[in-house]
Write a protein that binds this DNA or RNA. Structure first.
Length: 214
DNA sequence: CCCGTGATTTAT
DNA sequence: TAAATCACGGGG
C-alpha cells in the first residue's frame, strides 16, 4: 500500500513552487527510503527570467532536461562540488523549473546524516537539539542533494514513474502560511534578482536561511 | 569575510 | 585553447 503520487505538474513554475511546499520528497537507495517534507522552493521561469539557466531559450547540454515535460528532474553540478535538484514545470519546452531548496527530514535520518558526514543522535530528549540536528541534514539545495544521494546520474529522471526519486502527495500548505522573497544567489540576474520567487513555509526551522525583513 | 573545486560556457 | 563563471557550504 503506497501513497498517491503528487501529479500537478501543469501549474507553471511559480504555482508549482507553492504547491510543492508540504509535499513529500522520496528517494530510495538500495531498498532504503529517504524522505522529507519540502519546506522551501524557488521558481525559475525561463524566457525573460535572467536568473534561469534557460533564460532567453538558452539550451545547452547541461540544461537540456529543463525542456523535458513537467515532472522530470533537472539536476546540475556547480562550484566544483555541489549538486542542485530542480523539478521541471509545465508547459513543456519553456525551460521553467522549481529548485527544491530545503526539506524537513522524515524517514532515513541516520542515512542522511551519514551521507552528510554528521553524527546522528536519534531521539534526543531535548527538542532544541533535535531541531538543530534535523535542520543540519537537508536545509539547503546542495545539502539536500548530499543527504538524499542525488547527483547528475538522476538528471532527466521521470518523477511520475521513477521508483528511486518521486513526490508523494501530502496536505497542501495554506497560502497564509507561505512566505515569499527574493531568490538566493543570483546577483547577475539584473532586476530579476529581486523578484519574489522564493517560497517557504513560514517560520519553519528547516529553511536554508532567513527571509529579508518586510 | 574568504575560499575550495571542477564542469560548463563563452571569448579569443 | 584559455579564461571566466557559478541557483553553495563550511570555516573564521
Amino acid at each position: 500500500m503506497s501513497a498517491r503520487r503528487f501529479d500537478r505538474w501543469h501549474l507553471g513554475a511559480e504555482r508549482l513552487a507553492r504547491a510543492l511546499l508540504g509535499q513529500t520528497l522520496v528517494r530510495v537507495v538500495r531498498g532504503r527510503r529517504l524522505a522529507g517534507r519540502i519546506v522551501e522552493t524557488e521558481a525559475y521561469l525561463g524566457g525573460d527570467d535572467l536568473g534561469s539557466h534557460s533564460a532567453g531559450g538558452r539550451r545547452t547540454l547541461r540544461n537540456e532536461s529543463m525542456f523535458l515535460p513537467g515532472g522530470h528532474a533537472y539536476i546540475y553540478f556547480v562550484y566544483g562540488m555541489h549538486h542542485c535538484f530542480n523539478i521541471v514545470a509545465s508547459p513543456m519546452n519553456t525551460g521553467c523549473a522549481v529548485l527544491v531548496r530545503a526539506i524537513e527530514p522524515i524517514d532515513g535520518c541516520a542515512g542522511m546524516a551519514k551521507r552528510r558526514g554528521l553524527a546522528w543522535l536519534p531521539g534526543s530528549r531535548h527538542a532544541a537539539i533535535e531541531t538543530k540536528l534535523l535542520r543540519a541534514l537537508a536545509s539547503g539545495p546542495a545539502r539536500l542533494c548530499a543527504a538524499l544521494a542525488i547527483d547528475r546520474r538522476l538528471d532527466g529522471e521521470d518523477l511520475t514513474k521513477s521508483k528511486r526519486l518521486f513526490i508523494e502527495r501530502a496536505p497542501a500548505v495554506d497560502s497564509r502560511r507561505i512566505v515569499r522573497g527574493a531568490r538566493v544567489g543570483i546577483p547577475y540576474a539584473g532586476k530579476w534578482q529581486h523578484a519574489a520567487l522564493r517560497f517557504a513555509i513560514a517560520d519553519h526551522p528547516c529553511i536554508s536561511r532567513p527571509f529579508a525583513a518586510p
